[in-house]
């Protein structure tokens, strides 16, 4: 491949990187899940890379949001809020409360 070809090949990747970055900084949102009476509500949320998901615990005991895959866990003390910043890992994440595993939820992440 000559130099001009290399430049052409690289260009789309650069543009995509800028677009992702612009999305992450300009339109990042905070998505709230409320925990009350041992339920995540809503049970399923949709997020984009760069968004923050926050779990507000209205119960009188502590909970967690723990990815079924084991890749992340958010501590959510009683009466407090736990936060997760969605990084570059798009996909679907089933999660549960480690302390009360009958509590389940899902995060669906798009790029």
């Amino acid at each position: 491949m000559n130099v001009a070809g290399l430049r052409r090949a690289c260009l789309p990747a650069v543009v995509v990187a800028v677009m992702v970055s612009a999305h992450a900084t300009a339109s990042a949102e905070t998505i709230r899940v409320t925990i009350k009476a041992f339920r995540f509500s809503p049970v399923e949320v949709a997020a984009r890379v760069g968004d923050t998901i926050e779990w507000a615990n209205e119960d009188f005991v502590a909970h967690t949001a723990t990815a079924r895959s084991g890749e992340w866990e958010v501590a959510i003390p009683r009466g407090e809020v736990g936060r997760l910043i969605v990084d570059e890992s798009s996909g679907e994440w089933d999660y549960f409360c480690r302390f009360h595993p009958q509590m389940t939820g899902r995060v669906v992440v798009a790029d």
Binding site: R98, F99, H100, Q102, M103
Partner: peptide, 16 residues
């Protein structure tokens, strides 16, 4: 009843 909900979770947690 709330206790039962919490302790049901404890039983599952212990099993895990």
């Amino acid at each position: 009843s709330t206790g039962l909900e919490i302790f049901t979770g404890h039983q599952q947690h212990a099993e895990n």
